[in-house]
């Protein structure tokens, strides 16, 4: 897989190329250049640390959408064993933009469900660019109810630009599917852990993201609207999609902001330079967080679990309140 390089990653890519070249020369010519290589690698790692310490919300948006970023199936393969994928909503069709099925986390059965993007053009079309139609959300709900039937926890992996809103999706009730999922998820009698791994794209993400724990990767973004869309609509940004970086900053779409506003529980760290530079390392962090939260939730009674989940979403939002005559 060819590595795509974002603009702010270019200095890193240049150093990577130099290191590779040096390694090639030392191998071909049999000269030991390990000291130089180590020096360059140290320099590169410092540079990565420096660049990644100063990412803007827009940089993170680009990282969350990075064409080399690991997708749900990459995580499922690494974190879980014996994944048995299940297909279809039993109503209309199967939706390839959402995958789900039984899997084993350290030997324990769980239901895992995730948005799925495609890597190359053909696969991207097959996965509808990670945008689900109603049948995808209805499949997800079917699997969640199956997990509930067997008393198994549910783990959802969120990575979608948005729900599909084409003619067919509207025709089959995309809004109903999203709304129903959120409501039903709030009532599930089994633990639900949500991990936002890339793009948390509005209602399309939220339709599989109502859970007891909401975890979010360091470079993931979660937003009510894509920054481009916000910039195109609001006069604050001259209705210019090119102002997306400003809209990204204004919308506060990063994991830090989500944590600050008490909308997520924890930020999952990523390996140095982002998840796309180290799939194994990224998956290790995600697995550790999921396992730890799951162990905590296993101790909570069903009644408390559902009650806490309701209260968790109940307290989201910020407003002022003064007593009125009739208030």
């Amino acid at each position: 897989m060819a590595l795509s390089v974002l603009d702010f990653e270019k200095p890193i890519a240049e150093l990577d190329a130099n290191i590779a070249e040096l390694k090639r020369i030392s191998e071909e010519e049999g000269i030991d250049r390990s000291a130089d290589i180590e020096e360059l690698e140290r320099h590169r790692d410092d540079l990565i640390a420096q660049i990644f310490a100063n990412l803007t919300p827009w940089d993170k948006t680009l990282l969350a959408r990075h064409p080399n970023r690991p997708y749900s199936l990459d995580y499922i393969r690494t974190i879980f064993d014996d994944f048995v994928e299940l297909h279809g909503d039993r109503l209309f069709a199967d939706d390839n933009a959402i995958v789900g099925g039984w899997a084993f986390l350290d030997g324990n059965p769980v239901m895992v469900i995730g948005n799925q993007k495609g890597r190359d053009l053909k696969e991207r079309q097959f996965r509808n660019f990670g945008s689900s139609k109603p049948e995808g959300y209805r499949k997800a709900l079917r699997l969640m109810h199956m997990a509930e039937k067997f008393g198994r926890p549910i783990i959802t992996l969120v990575d979608t630009p948005a729900a599909d809103c084409s003619f067919g999706a509207e025709e089959r009730g995309i809004s109903e599917a999203i709304a129903r999922n959120m409501m039903e998820m709030s009532l599930l009698k089994v633990p639900v852990i949500v991990a936002v791994l890339g793009e948390g794209g509005s209602g399309g993400a939220l339709a599989i993201a109502v859970g007891d724990r909401i975890l979010m990767q360091e470079n993931a973004v979660y937003s009510v609207i894509p920054p481009e869309g916000c910039a195109a609509i609001l006069s604050e940004f001259q209705r210019d999609p090119a102002r997306a970086p400003d809209a990204a900053a204004a919308l506060k779409i990063t994991a830090e902001h989500a944590l600050e506003h008490k909308l997520i529980d924890e930020i999952i760290p990523e390996p140095v330079g982002g998840a796309h530079r180290n799939y194994e390392g990224a998956a290790k962090f995600v697995k550790e967080a999921i396992s730890r939260h799951l162990a905590e939730l296993e101790k909570v009674s069903t009644k408390k679990l559902v009650e806490h989940r309701y209260n968790k979403f109940r307290q989201m939002g910020v407003y002022a309140e003064t007593q009125c005559e009739n208030g």
């Binding site: 959120m182 709030s186 509005s202 939220l206 109502v210 937003s223 979403f313 989201m316 939002g317």
Partner: peptide
Amino acid sequence: GLLSLMQMAKTSA
């Protein structure tokens, strides 16, 4: 921003 989005989940619950 995200606070608005979460009102969807809150009201649906």
